[in-house]
């Protein structure tokens, strides 16, 4: 049963695009990715108009102070399970708006992010590739959870001891979040 649901989730990611104070560059590229040329309906990806229908939040921009509570609210309105993609350099780290008086430093300053897609602006190919890779990753995670449920002996006090079960993805991220971000411009670029 779990396998069927994983398959369905992998085949039908519906995205919600939210501009959190972006310069509009990443937004135009996101809309580009939805156009017939790239035809993302091949992967079952659909653009949805309300957070209630969406599975993946594609957020762009460095998150202005005005947008931060709204971004949080939209995130909370999305039904579980949900994933977040930070699209563009600003969304990943704050970009050129880093340390600006009216901005936060990227989406992960407000809500947890599952995937960073760098680029100024992001190319549609990178965005599509990012979504596909994110789905593969979350599928693996769900598989590991099922495995841990079926064979509790391989999990010890919430930590998996088997190599087949990947570690909690948030475990090492919280450290880097607190550390000063100078010099850490962009995460690893997505291969296209």
């Amino acid at each position: 049963m779990g396998r069927i649901i994983d398959w369905a989730r992998n085949r039908s990611p519906w995205i919600l695009h939210l501009n959190c104070g972006s310069c509009n560059g990443c937004d135009i590229e996101t809309i580009d990715a939805l156009m017939p040329r790239y035809d993302i309906e091949r992967f079952g990806i659909q653009q949805k108009d309300t957070p209630r229908h969406a599975d993946i939040l594609v957020a762009t921009g460095p998150v202005t102070e005005q947008m931060a509570p709204r971004l949080k609210r939209v995130y909370e309105q999305m039904p579980e399970p949900k994933l977040v993609i930070a699209a563009g350099s600003c969304a990943s780290t704050g970009g050129v708006f880093y340390d600006c008086y009216n901005c936060r430093e990227g989406i992960d300053d407000v809500i947890p992010v599952d995937m960073y897609i760098p680029g100024c602006p992001t190319s549609p190919e990178a965005l599509i590739d990012g979504i596909v890779k994110l789905l593969a990753e979350s599928g693996k995670e769900a598989q590991a959870e099922r495995l841990a449920e079926k064979k509790p002996e391989i999990v010890e006090e919430g930590t998996p001891i088997d190599e087949a079960v990947p570690k909690e993805p948030d475990a090492d991220r919280t450290e880097t979040d607190d550390a000063p971000q100078e010099g850490a411009d962009e995460p690893e670029p997505v291969e296209v």
Partner: peptide, 9 residues
């Protein structure tokens, strides 16, 4: 796939 995914959400 859409239908099953929505059922599981």
């Amino acid at each position: 796939a859409d239908f099953l995914k929505l059922l599981a959400k």
